[in-house]
Design a binder for these strands. Structure first.
Lengths: 211, 211
DNA sequence: ACAAAAGTGTTAACTTTACACCCATGT
DNA sequence: ACATGGGTGTAAAGTTAACACTTTTGT
């Protein structure tokens, strides 16, 4: 029996949750999009395998993963019996920029996914759910927005996570009260409307649940 | 490579969290206590395997499990490479009574565990953490206390889950306000002090987070 | 000048916390 | 009668929710 580690790597681009997928070049599911994955070798742990996977296939290093669920349906891989262990990560825009997007590697909005191979659609659903819960933790949020960001940006993200709109004034009051961020002194430029203040996370933040 | 499913079955007995363990009769770890587990056969899913495990070894049926983490340290089993997938369940007193406790099968308080084999101590720590989080959901709570219970009983459980004391009046107010339970009309008998009112969960309850 | 998006403050409703005395039973 | 544990109410503090106008930019 074989075991594979699968990587659901998510980010926010233009305020939308996106997931990183690879296009499969061989049968089965040739031409379909799939999660990056790697078989577990006899002398590797799952954690080593998932790191090897993103290192080999995406040239990404030092990505923090969190284990999600195991998938074990008998026929989830039509060629042989494979049990899949899903890993999840959320990466910031700087990591996104390092990636070499091309015909076989791209970001997809999570509610507009392409044709997916295997049971990866199911795996992605679980991963997204998990990430959404994680984003209520201040420490995860800081990972996603390490550099300058605006409050409306974070608000839009939470509106997607919570699936409902938030009042701008109340959001701002509550988020600032959490004492996690500070103004950089700068403002956004070039957008429509009044420029937004830029913020950054403080050096040391308390780990707390938001919203 | 082999895969095993491991069962962390927890309950509350006399207000204490306990976990069900089996004593190992063969080397390695002969005489140590371990979690019930079962190897995954080529034509079984993980879910089928964990159900088979408790069905064969404990004669328990229709237990609901929730998947926890996978454990994959190379030497977690000294004899061969085995990746373990942990499953967690919380069962009520009626299920507890069905079990045939003996020299090789017993409940242990989670903070007074016996000598454990393999990496099961680590697995149990994760399971307990997961169960504690699940117990904030009204539906899980209902599973643990299907029959008559008292409010002080539930309060003591939450004090263990949250790791701090709760004010009796405030606890009562908040819990009753959640509109999950109703008085049975009866009271406890035979204990020291004033008898406590008995409650039961309502037939249909809303799934909500408590505390 | 107008459209677009961001910034700001107050009040009412609700939730949480703190706190002390009485009640029903067993010994 | 006393010890044990359960039941009850109120007030202050804190949190959340509802709500509208002004400011700064680009076109």
């Amino acid at each position: 029996m074989q075991i594979e580690a699968l990587a659901s790597i998510l980010t926010i681009i233009d305020g939308k949750f996106k997931i990183l997928l690879m296009r499969k070049k061989t049968e089965p599911y040739k031409g379909y999009w799939v999660l990056p994955s790697e078989f577990v070798e006899k002398n590797s742990t799952l954690e080593e395998t998932i790191n090897l996977c993103v290192s080999n296939k995406l040239e990404l290093h030092n990505i923090e993963f969190e284990q999600s669920l195991a998938f074990s349906a008998i026929d989830r891989n039509p060629s042989k019996r494979v049990i899949g262990i899903s890993y999840v990560s959320i990466v910031d825009s700087r990591t996104v920029e390092k990636l070499n997007i091309n015909d076989s590697l791209d970001w997809f909005e999570i509610d507009q996914l392409p044709k997916l191979g295997y049971d990866h659609s199911e795996i992605i659903m679980e991963s997204v759910e998990m990430i959404k819960n994680k984003l209520r933790e201040s420490t995860t949020l800081k990972k996603l927005f390490p550099s300058d960001f605006t409050l409306p940006e974070i608000q839009r993200m939470y509106e997607q996570v919570l699936n409902h709109d938030l009042d701008r004034r109340n959001f701002r009051k509550k988020f600032l009260k959490a004492d996690l961020i500070e103004e950089t002194g700068d403002k956004t430029i070039g957008n429509n409307g009044r420029p937004a203040k830029l913020y950054r996370f403080k050096e040391e933040i308390e780990s707390k649940l938001l919203f």
